[in-house]
Computed example of a mutant assay.
Amino acid sequence: MDTMDYIIKTLETLVNIPSPSGYTREVMEFVRKEAEGFGYACEMSKKGGLVIQVKGLGGETLGLSAHVDTLGAMVRSVSGEGMLKFTMVGGYTMQSIEGSYCKIHTREGKVYTGTILSKSPSVHTFDDARTLDRTERNMEIRIDEVVKNREDVLKLGINSGDYVSFLANFEYTEKGFIKSRHLDDKASVAVLLGLLKDMSEHGLTPKRNIKLLISNYEEVGFGASWIPEDITEFIAVDMGALGDDLNGTEYAVSICAKDSSGPYDYDLTTDLINLAKENGIDYAVDVFPHYGSDVSAAMRGGHNIKGALIGQGIHASHGMERTHRDSLMNTLKLLKVYVI
């Protein structure tokens, strides 16, 4: 299978595996099997992240990361009317999930479906349907079960602390657009698996040993607070944010010079920019004021590393996201010329 076709097919699989931060065992198992299928050894970290090892020509170890955890929610309480109150996992606006279909995952392994709604969900019956503030306090989940009160819900096995995942609604269009929730950051995970596929099938040996960290708590801020100690250079592969006065597009690879955690390593970022120029890769350099990455977490964790951030441009991040096949391809190209 062509590598880009593999990346898009894999991305569709990934976004349809529920994995809000901390609830990632199933999706990690999928990624592990893919990596091992390409011949690369894997091990799990204590907090559930995956480390994939690629032997290179020697020298210092390069770290690459992408996070497989997504936005989601957790049941906070059950109302007397049998509706679920919830708390956010990750940061997003309530407007971006209102009306979305979801799944509720109980601690006993049961899965129920539902819909996320405001407490005033209909203009026909609520005076404040249009004006009610969309905050956690004013949102709830309607379960697709015959429930009339709190006790009916508890009998289903649903209770506080159960995870809620949002359905992805993946679509790949004839013009090459990928529309879906959770492109942040499963698009990058798919690109890294595409990189492993290329290296394995074409016998490509990287110039240094590589450790790929697939993290599982990035959306809540501490995905890569721990990384393997032999990593000296660390590149987060995450989304490129689009909008306002930013330069990125849905067709280019974004290279981030600074985000909310501060500037990324000057020399490493410059090297990536120059490689993109020299190899005719469509790229954009940007500053992301409301953004943090696995490299940010690693820096806060005290690691002595050089850090950089790249990724495909994602429109409407943390909402109904979209990118383009070309952006995935340009991200893959930049990774290949850097590591090979």
Rank of each mutant, 00 (worst) to 15 (best):
P206Y: 06
Y23M: 15
I141H: 03
E218M: 02
A35N: 00
F222R: 05
K47S: 07
N274K: 10
H202P: 00
P289V: 08
T93F: 02
T331D: 08
T323V: 02
L50S: 06
G39I: 02
Q53M: 00
G319L: 03
L268W: 06
M329E: 15
H202V: 01
G203L: 04
E98V: 11
M28W: 02
N330R: 13
N149D: 13
A298M: 08
I340G: 08
F288V: 09
I178Q: 03
R150W: 03
Y163T: 01
Y217L: 07
L195E: 01
M1C: 04
G292M: 04
S215L: 03
E26C: 04
T249W: 04
L246T: 06
Y112L: 06
M199N: 01
L335S: 14
P18D: 11
D184N: 09
F86Y: 14
G240I: 12
H324W: 05
I214H: 13
H182D: 00
K46D: 14
D127N: 15
P289C: 04
D267L: 11
A241S: 12
K258V: 10
H202M: 10
T61G: 05
Q53N: 06
F222Y: 12
T135H: 04
P18A: 08
G262C: 12
G221N: 01
E321K: 06
I158R: 06
L332I: 00
H324V: 02
T135Q: 09
L334Q: 11
V253S: 05
Y6I: 10
I97L: 11
Q53C: 00
G301W: 03
S100E: 13
E278S: 10
E145L: 09
N330D: 08
Y266F: 09
P206S: 02
N304Q: 12
S165H: 08
K103H: 14
C102K: 06
Q312N: 15
I273P: 01
T24P: 02
V27M: 01
